[in-house]
Amino acid sequence: MIGLDGKSEIGFRGILPFISTLALVLLMQLQYKITFLDNMFPFLSLTAVYYWCIFKPQLMPVSVVFVLGLLQDILGGGPLGMMALLLVLVQMFVVRQSSRFLEREFLFNWLVFIIVTLVFGLATWIIASVYLKESQNFWDAFGQSMLTIAIFPVVVLGLRWVRSLLVTENR
């Protein structure tokens, strides 16, 4: 995941992290016609925000994360501000720690992601329960988090390819 030394970013391609995260947000809104996925679709946007905040934090500022989270709230029909708030908190946490993540292996990043996702799932369950004024099924949120953790390597593979488009060889 690391080791793209000697390379620099190209201006226009700087929007690729935003575009790729937006694509994942839209992907989360589609109807997959599978009863299981209909109930708990992985938090793809969380994976993208986590990834870009580690490797290109300057291209995933808090304002962009807020807009993407808000868009997810609007398109998903959930409470306005829920995803925006949670993704901003994830961005804050990861950007602060990103230098430590960069030095580590993929497995370490995945392990941290497991903790982040479980806390994220717990937070969505708490907010949804407070918002709906009724305790919701916790295991649905847990299942959603587990699916997100399981699919992490696949999403990262795609984002890594997008990241390779961001850089060019220094001549």
Partner: peptide, 12 residues
């Protein structure tokens, strides 16, 4: 579009 969420059930 589908909310695909366990807590909010709606479609666009």
């Amino acid at each position: 579009s589908d909310s695909d969420s366990p807590f909010f059930k709606s479609v666009l």
